[in-house]
Each structure stands twice: as structure tokens, then as C-alpha cells.
């Protein structure tokens, strides 16, 4: 999803968990269903088009999966893609570890004055 090598995957996963914990119960429920679906091997195979278990899937298989959901004619699959996109991007770009590679920093003139 992020297209960057050497990412702190555990931190990102933790960030996703935190992000989910801040959502409404009704939305958490929808995400639960999405992750259950992705964990189901038949759904993985037929809906996501990934034959091997997730941990063994190749980069090109994952890319094909994301692309097919991103552009799917079905609103539901597009929204599932968008949910994954939002959670993972929020978890990484909300993490200060991602900032220096982008050349972003908080304004130094005020940071030292904060409590």
C-alpha cells in the first residue's frame, strides 16, 4: 500500500489498531467484517484474487488485489479498499517517523514553547 521499503510494520499495525479504537462502534463493526472477510481463505482467493496466504503473497499479487478493489465496479469493494488505504496512510503519515523523508517538520519557533 505505502510503496516504501523498510517501514516499521509493527508500529504501523499498532497505529491502525489505535485509529480503529477511536471510531464509532458501528464503523468498527464494518471493519471487523472486512478483516474477517480478508482472513477467510475463500474470500481471499475469489474476492481478492490472492492464492497464497497473505504473508506469502508477492508484491505483484498484492498490487493486483489493491488495484482491482480500488477500481472495482462494486461500491462495496471500493469502500473496502478506501478503508484500508485510509487506515494505513493515517497510521504511517501520522507517525513522526515518516516526516523527515518528506522534508516535513513542525514549526520550530513554537514547538519549544509547548508544555
Amino acid at each position: 500500500m505505502l510503496g516504501l521499503p523498510g517501514l516499521p510494520v509493527n508500529d504501523i499495525v499498532r497505529g491502525v489498531d489505535v485509529a480503529i479504537s477511536n471510531l464509532l462502534p458501528a464503523i468498527q463493526q464494518e471493519l471487523r467484517q472486512l478483516f474477517d472477510l480478508l482472513a477467510n481463505r475463500w474470500a481471499r482467493r475469489w474476492l481478492a484474487g490472492v492464492r497464497k496466504p497473505w504473508a506469502q503473497a508477492t508484491e505483484s499479487e498484492l498490487t493486483a488485489f489493491l488495484r482491482s478493489w480500488q477500481h472495482s465496479p462494486l461500491l462495496l469493494l471500493r469502500s473496502a479498499y478506501q478503508a484500508l488505504h485510509a487506515l494505513i496512510n493515517a497510521a504511517w503519515f501520522g507517525n513522526p517517523a515518516s516526516w523527515s523523508a518528506m522534508g516535513y517538520q513542525q514549526p520550530p519557533q513554537i514547538m519549544s514553547l509547548l508544555p
Partner: peptide
């Protein structure tokens, strides 16, 4: 960064 990260289209 966070808001632009979730707002931009595309991935990878």
C-alpha cells in the same frame, strides 16, 4: 502529512 496521506488517490 496525515490528512494529505489519506486524501491523495492511488497507492504504492
Amino acid at each position: 502529512p496525515l490528512l494529505v496521506g489519506v486524501t491523495l488517490s492511488g497507492f504504492g
